[in-house]
Protein backbone atom coordinates (compact mmCIF):
# COMPACT_ATOMS: atom_id res chain seq x y z
CA UNK A 1 0.00 0.00 0.00
CA UNK A 2 2.70 2.46 0.93
CA UNK A 3 4.66 1.37 -2.10
CA UNK A 4 1.75 2.30 -4.31
CA UNK A 5 1.65 5.67 -2.66
CA UNK A 6 5.32 6.09 -3.45
CA UNK A 7 4.58 5.28 -7.07
CA UNK A 8 1.82 7.81 -6.92
CA UNK A 9 4.35 10.42 -5.87
CA UNK A 10 6.53 9.37 -8.79
CA UNK A 11 3.79 9.56 -11.38
CA UNK A 12 2.59 12.83 -10.03
CA UNK A 13 5.74 14.81 -10.51
CA UNK A 14 5.71 14.08 -14.16
CA UNK A 15 5.17 17.31 -15.95
CA UNK A 16 5.41 20.94 -14.94
CA UNK A 17 3.55 22.26 -17.98
CA UNK A 18 0.51 23.43 -16.16
CA UNK A 19 2.28 24.89 -13.24
CA UNK A 20 -0.58 25.43 -10.87
CA UNK A 21 -2.10 22.02 -11.52
CA UNK A 22 1.27 20.41 -11.01
CA UNK A 23 1.82 22.24 -7.75
CA UNK A 24 -1.62 21.28 -6.48
CA UNK A 25 -1.02 17.64 -7.37
CA UNK A 26 2.36 17.64 -5.66
CA UNK A 27 0.86 19.18 -2.52
CA UNK A 28 -1.76 16.46 -2.54
CA UNK A 29 0.88 13.76 -2.91
CA UNK A 30 2.73 15.18 0.08
CA UNK A 31 -0.48 15.35 2.11
CA UNK A 32 -1.27 11.75 1.25
CA UNK A 33 2.16 10.69 2.44
CA UNK A 34 1.72 12.67 5.65
CA UNK A 35 -1.48 10.84 6.51
CA UNK A 36 -0.21 7.44 5.40
CA UNK A 37 3.05 7.57 7.32
CA UNK A 38 1.30 8.96 10.35
CA UNK A 39 -1.22 6.15 10.16
CA UNK A 40 1.35 3.38 9.86
CA UNK A 41 4.32 4.57 11.87
CA UNK A 42 3.03 6.68 14.71
CA UNK A 43 -0.13 6.37 16.65
CA UNK A 44 -1.12 9.98 17.04
CA UNK A 45 -3.02 12.68 15.23
CA UNK A 46 -0.16 15.05 14.40
CA UNK A 47 -0.02 13.99 10.76
CA UNK A 48 -3.70 14.58 10.17
CA UNK A 49 -3.58 17.92 11.96
CA UNK A 50 -0.62 18.89 9.83
CA UNK A 51 -2.48 17.97 6.68
CA UNK A 52 -5.40 20.17 7.73
CA UNK A 53 -3.04 23.14 7.91
CA UNK A 54 -1.42 22.12 4.66
CA UNK A 55 -4.75 22.00 2.84
CA UNK A 56 -5.67 25.43 4.15
CA UNK A 57 -2.32 26.82 3.00
CA UNK A 58 -2.74 25.21 -0.41
CA UNK A 59 -6.16 26.82 -0.75
CA UNK A 60 -4.71 30.25 0.06
CA UNK A 61 -1.90 29.65 -2.40
CA UNK A 62 -4.36 28.63 -5.12
CA UNK A 63 -6.43 31.77 -4.55
CA UNK A 64 -3.41 34.05 -4.84
CA UNK A 65 -2.06 32.26 -7.90
CA UNK A 66 -5.41 32.43 -9.65
CA UNK A 67 -5.66 36.17 -8.90
CA UNK A 68 -2.15 36.67 -10.31
CA UNK A 69 -3.10 34.67 -13.41
CA UNK A 70 -6.18 36.85 -13.91
CA UNK A 71 -4.16 40.05 -13.54
CA UNK A 72 -1.48 38.76 -15.89
CA UNK A 73 -4.14 37.82 -18.40
CA UNK A 74 -5.76 41.25 -18.25
CA UNK A 75 -2.41 42.98 -18.60
CA UNK A 76 -0.87 40.82 -21.28
CA UNK A 77 -3.79 39.09 -22.99
CA UNK A 78 -2.10 35.76 -22.39
CA UNK A 79 -0.88 33.54 -19.59
CA UNK A 80 2.13 31.96 -21.21
CA UNK A 81 4.75 32.06 -18.49
CA UNK A 82 7.63 32.41 -20.91
CA UNK A 83 6.08 35.62 -22.26
CA UNK A 84 6.07 37.36 -18.91
CA UNK A 85 9.52 38.74 -19.51
CA UNK A 86 8.76 42.10 -17.94
CA UNK A 87 9.22 40.52 -14.52
CA UNK A 88 12.91 40.06 -15.25
CA UNK A 89 15.19 42.59 -13.63
Amino acid sequence: MLFAIGIYGLLVKKNALRLLFAVEIMINAANLNFVAFNQYLWNNAVGQTFVLFSIALAAAEAAVVLAIILVAFRLRRGIDVSELKSLEG
Partner: peptide, 26 residues
Protein backbone atom coordinates in the same frame (compact mmCIF):
# COMPACT_ATOMS: atom_id res chain seq x y z
CA UNK B 1 -7.82 7.64 -0.35
CA UNK B 2 -7.93 9.66 2.88
CA UNK B 3 -11.17 7.90 3.75
CA UNK B 4 -9.54 4.56 2.99
CA UNK B 5 -6.66 5.50 5.27
CA UNK B 6 -9.10 5.88 8.16
CA UNK B 7 -8.80 9.63 8.12
CA UNK B 8 -12.40 10.68 7.44
CA UNK B 9 -11.95 14.14 8.92
CA UNK B 10 -9.11 14.97 6.57
CA UNK B 11 -11.05 13.39 3.70
CA UNK B 12 -14.09 15.54 4.38
CA UNK B 13 -11.88 18.59 4.71
CA UNK B 14 -10.25 17.74 1.40
CA UNK B 15 -13.62 17.44 -0.32
CA UNK B 16 -14.89 20.70 1.15
CA UNK B 17 -11.79 22.75 0.44
CA UNK B 18 -10.47 21.23 -2.76
CA UNK B 19 -13.36 19.69 -4.64
CA UNK B 20 -15.75 22.29 -3.32
CA UNK B 21 -13.79 25.52 -3.43
CA UNK B 22 -10.49 25.27 -5.23
CA UNK B 23 -11.79 23.25 -8.16
CA UNK B 24 -14.65 25.69 -8.70
CA UNK B 25 -12.22 28.60 -8.41
CA UNK B 26 -9.91 27.03 -10.98
Amino acid sequence: LFFLLNAPFVGAFQIIVYVGAVAVLI
